[in-house]
């Protein structure tokens, strides 16, 4: 019973954590990326994390519905 409740709380937390992850990766990329400053990539990987997160979110939403083209899949 307790485990079920924890799982439920965990599920509620996931979108907030995902949102925080998205935003933090974007903030880090937009403030620390060396390409606009020095014209070269320092391979920090911030942009990869940010972009991977957005692609992963698109796959997740498509899989679980709520996409704008959902009616086409019916």
């Amino acid at each position: 019973m307790k485990q079920k409740s924890l799982l439920k709380h965990g599920e509620k937390l996931v979108p907030w954590l995902a949102g925080a992850g998205f935003a933090v990766s974007h903030i880090i990329t937009s403030s620390n990326c060396t390409i606009p400053k020095q014209g070269r990539c320092s391979t920090c990987g911030g942009c990869v994390v940010g972009l991977a997160a957005i692609v992963a979110w698109a796959v997740h939403k498509k899989k679980h519905g709520n996409g704008i083209y959902d009616d086409q899949s019916a």
Binding site: W16, G19, A20, F22, A23, V24, H26, I27, W57, N66
Partner: peptide
């Protein structure tokens, strides 16, 4: 920005 993205992802449409 951080607050907006968190709200957007957790609340959705």
């Amino acid at each position: 920005y951080l607050t907006g993205v968190m709200l957007l992802i957790s609340a959705d449409a």
